[in-house]
Amino acid sequence: MNLIDRYVSEVGKHLPLLNGREDIEKELKSTLEDMLEDRAQNSGQARDEAMEIEVLKEYGSPQKVAQTYNPHPYLIGPKLFPFFLFVLKIVLTVVVSVMLVLAGIQAVTDTPFMGADFAKIIGQGLGSALSAAIAAFGNVVLVFVILERVLPDKEIGSFDDEKEWDPASLAKEPDPDSVSRSELIAEIVFTFVALAILNIYPQWLGMFFFTENEQVFFPIFTEKFFQFVPYINIVLVGKILLDIYLLRNAIWNQLTRLSKVVIEAASLTLTVLILRAPDIIAFSAESLANGPFEPEQAEIFATIATYTFPMMMAIVIIIQSIELVKAVYRLFKMRRETA
């Protein structure tokens, strides 16, 4: 392998992973050969290694040359960046608020208002909120980095509303078949965060209680709940794929409407199955009594938890039912209009 081939190969190593890497290398080699031929002709000297070194030095370091072919020198481009900030603010606000509320509940129910334990719980709560915020930030960045690379340029371009925005559109009726990009992106991010929590951070689904000497973690769910996780994953991934498809196409069609019905029906079925499954909640008077609770306190806490879960699931089922009915109605309406 001569110097030129080694240089071309080195440039190739630093090229971004895109189609046409071989093409770039082939063109670069051809150009360098042309330059050397030209130089040899002009100087009247035969081509040698010194001339090759001179040409390569002039052309620049392999990293620098490869960088000029990089269409994405940034993680999140300027057109998606405002949406990234929009979603990030929502996600961070929700995540930090939830973590702080959980820490607050724990501090109030678990310890006296003053003292080392109270300060410890508050400190731990702030620490958890910070680590959750960092993890959420990482996940949001990851989603947008993927969107930046998955969405075609023209779709990313259409996020730049300022150029296309028409004040007259304020008076227009919204098109029922158009999609709201910001809502879709927010949904993708939240679904992604849910996937991450269920699969990577299941330990977050629980509460810490502090005794004098140790901290005790009580998971909210039993192993039986985690048997549903693969099915939940399928539904959540389906949601993300549908949202990405809608982002690319910008408008609902019969296929996406039908997919929405299927996903909503699957979500509802899954929620009902989880609700009907016995022994899903890990909190029980016996297990809590082993922790920092007195038997009576444990009984009360377990009772609250046992009743709260079905109530929350019932609310989720109502919301999902409404979403399913809306999805079915919109599908039939679209079919009627296109018939």
């Binding site: 063109e27 150009t31 620049g60 000029t68 072919y69 269409p71």
Partner: peptide, 10 residues
């Protein structure tokens, strides 16, 4: 060259 070749591809 670093400007022209990527420009041609673009």
């Amino acid at each position: 060259q670093g400007t022209l070749y990527p420009l041609l591809r673009r």
